[in-house]
Design a protein around this nucleic acid. Sequence first.
DNA 1: CGATATATTGACAGGAGTCAAAGAGGGTGG
DNA 2: CCACCCTCTTTGACTCCTGTCAATATATCG
Lengths: 237, 237
Amino acid sequence: MPVEMMIRKLRLHSELPNENIEALRSIVTPVKNMPEDSVIVREGDLSTQCCVIMSGFAYRSKVSETGKRQILSFHIAGDMPDLQGLPLKLMDHDLTTLSPAQVGFINHEALERVLVSRPALARALWRETLVDASLFRQWIVNLGTRSAAGRMAYLIAELRQRLGAMGLVANEQFDFPITQSKLADALGLSVVHVNRVLQTFRAEGVLDLRRSVVTLGDLEKIIELGGFEALEDDSAM
Amino acid sequence: MPVEMMIRKLRLHSELPNENIEALRSIVTPVKNMPEDSVIVREGDLSTQCCVIMSGFAYRSKVSETGKRQILSFHIAGDMPDLQGLPLKLMDHDLTTLSPAQVGFINHEALERVLVSRPALARALWRETLVDASLFRQWIVNLGTRSAAGRMAYLIAELRQRLGAMGLVANEQFDFPITQSKLADALGLSVVHVNRVLQTFRAEGVLDLRRSVVTLGDLEKIIELGGFEALEDDSAM
DNA sequence: CGATATATTGACAGGAGTCAAAGAGGGTGG
DNA sequence: CCACCCTCTTTGACTCCTGTCAATATATCG
């Protein structure tokens, strides 16, 4: 029941009565299976629906005028990566699948009708977009203050944390089907340097990222390198 | 009438009937004059109010575990830089005045009461937080894809655009009372290198940032260096 | 007019980019 | 089942952008 992921995630920060959950569930379209590298929405599009990642991965990206692509964030099961399109409509970045993915869609008009009488649900969705913004802020810190190895470690630590919250980490190992070239675009590094960092990590037993799977070797070290602090739990909604 | 700035800004992306505007205006507290470097909210705080910059500048920042400070964004008259604290409460970063500033406050409880019966206003505020998120995304692109000079140029171009929208740019010149050390923290560069970039800009007549004032020399060049594209206008709310 | 913060310089080091070529892996079609 | 192709990964050599350190000059302010 893949929609549950989305609900699970919303409930991480918002209390939602079942009635709201049901209303939301009822307007999610049947899941669509998308191959990797499928564009879900493109910069400049006007959103008419938003999507829910049911399984697999997606990423958001933007190309700067110099032609370089910057990956802004990665998304996992439960995420609604273009929710901000509900109030804002005009997409300012692309959203693409990173792996084969199951994606559900929610029509904006249907969602608006549901929200009219359910302010708590509207608020939960607002929060969801703000948690998203908070991750962007942390990403800015990551890019602005850390070395190549630190950035990489941070990315892995963040992913582990988010995947963990969704129950997708087992035996300190998780799926992450990404190429080094995309890692480079996310971290603001060159492919060559990404490769160098990954090899150092392997050699030192920090972690091993290979063939779509990340194996965490020395979690302490990763957290130290990435300066990652576990998110506080959500006592303060 | 400094509150007008906030209204002007909200109306950049949302249509708001006067009735909503009045409701909002009525709960803004009298302006408080704050000296430079005053902390408005601190990471870890629970928000009970949000602020409106009436005049002057503020910035948001976060310190990474390595002790380095990253400045996330600068804020100008009309901005509500901690609006996200309304739904999210727990601050994940600091908010500080950059210059002496006039700041108004809006109590959360009062605001919630106003919002209950005004979904359009709630939506406008949601949008406001999303525009904010959109700027963070652009900042990620800036840090991830551009060289030192490019980042600096982008910052100036962005500021010029935002200050311009508020009517705060005259004769290709505007106020921006910042030290090179803070610029460094924003751009993810060292102070020394910031200095070098600024000198090159002066020498080449690109721009002159000195004693709290930015003078734009060659706007074309700035936009080219910073790869800045004017924001589309807001036809797509 | 000191005292402190900020800006500027110069010399040097090093992390990360670039270029170019060689391996590996994974599909695909014959 | 193997050859071929294409993408992805890995290496090595070299460059250069940006950081670091340390000293000096300039502002600013009480």
